[in-house]
């Protein structure tokens, strides 16, 4: 399991890193912000923040998808914070931030909200004819996988507790390459195996929407084409001969 987790982490980091590099290096030759758009760079930062934190466009579009989607993503973030207690050493300055009761209890109950959000999204995929039409098997499976990750996590938190001291030794050992045994728990095995799958498919699937949104020209460009000439490298090389005339 240690080995699987490490491989998955490497694939995830390298894969997403390469994708980010690709997005960052591919030019956007034309100004295409969806207007009205901010006319300053600061404005763009705010627009992007509203998009990423509040899902502004989705809110304009469809309240049901927004409710379920936002609930899922925020809960996932809270649950992620709760998990930091397995990685952060008690000696670290981070420990009080991670171990306090607010982060821990919010993170614990967020698990329920996360599963409810995911079930809502899955239900829409089955029930709404238009969304059913555009769904591939992987679209359903991904939701099911996240639901099982959530449910197996909740099981360990609320139904059959596991030996978290042993778990912490396992996780800390993982990063020191001092491999320890996992506590015995089927829920934990399922939980971790699916996290491995999640990390592995991340750079090769629609999960790339996470880095993608930051590179979306319709959202991250400043609306100032009359004031400032925007020119990509390939266009400058190929199509700028009139300038020297």
């Amino acid at each position: 399991m240690s080995f699987l987790l490490l491989i998955a982490l490497v694939v995830f980091i390298v894969g997403v890193g390469l994708k980010i590099k690709q997005y960052a290096q591919t030019p956007a030759p034309l100004k295409i912000p969806t207007t009205p758009a901010p006319v300053t760079q600061t404005g763009v930062v705010f627009r992007m923040a509203r998009e990423v934190v509040l899902f502004e466009s989705l809110f304009k579009s469809n309240k049901w998808i927004w409710v379920f989607g936002w609930m899922f993503h925020v809960s996932l973030l809270l649950a992620f914070f709760r998990h930091l207690r397995y990685v952060v050493s008690p000696d670290s300055f981070m420990w009080p931030l991670v171990s306090n009761v607010i982060v821990q209890s919010f993170g614990q109950y967020a698990g329920f909200a996360m599963v409810i959000g995911l079930l809502g999204l899955l239900a829409r995929r089955f029930l709404v004819e238009r969304i059913r039409y555009i769904s591939s098997p992987s679209d359903y499976l991904m939701l099911v996988m996240l639901i099982v990750i959530g449910v197996s996590g909740l099981m360990m938190s609320f139904v059959s507790h596991i030996d978290i001291v042993q778990l912490k030794m396992f996780v800390m050992g993982l990063f020191g390459f001092d491999f320890q045994n996992l506590p015995e728990s089927t829920a934990l095995i399922v939980h971790l195996l699916l996290v491995v799958v999640l990390l592995l498919i991340f750079p090769f699937s629609k999960l790339l929407h996470a880095p993608g949104v930051f590179f979306s020209p319709t959202r991250n460009q400043v609306d100032n084409p009359r004031e400032k000439r925007h020119l990509s490298a390939w266009a400058a090389e190929k199509y700028n001969d009139h300038v020297d005339k």
Partner: peptide, 22 residues
């Protein structure tokens, strides 16, 4: 897709949420 970031990012990023369908 090598010359237009929009094209590459848009091809990768859609999660089929259905917000645009109507």
């Amino acid at each position: 897709r090598s010359r237009y970031r929009s094209f590459q990012v848009f091809l990768d990023s859609c999660v089929k949420c259905g917000a645009c369908t109507d």
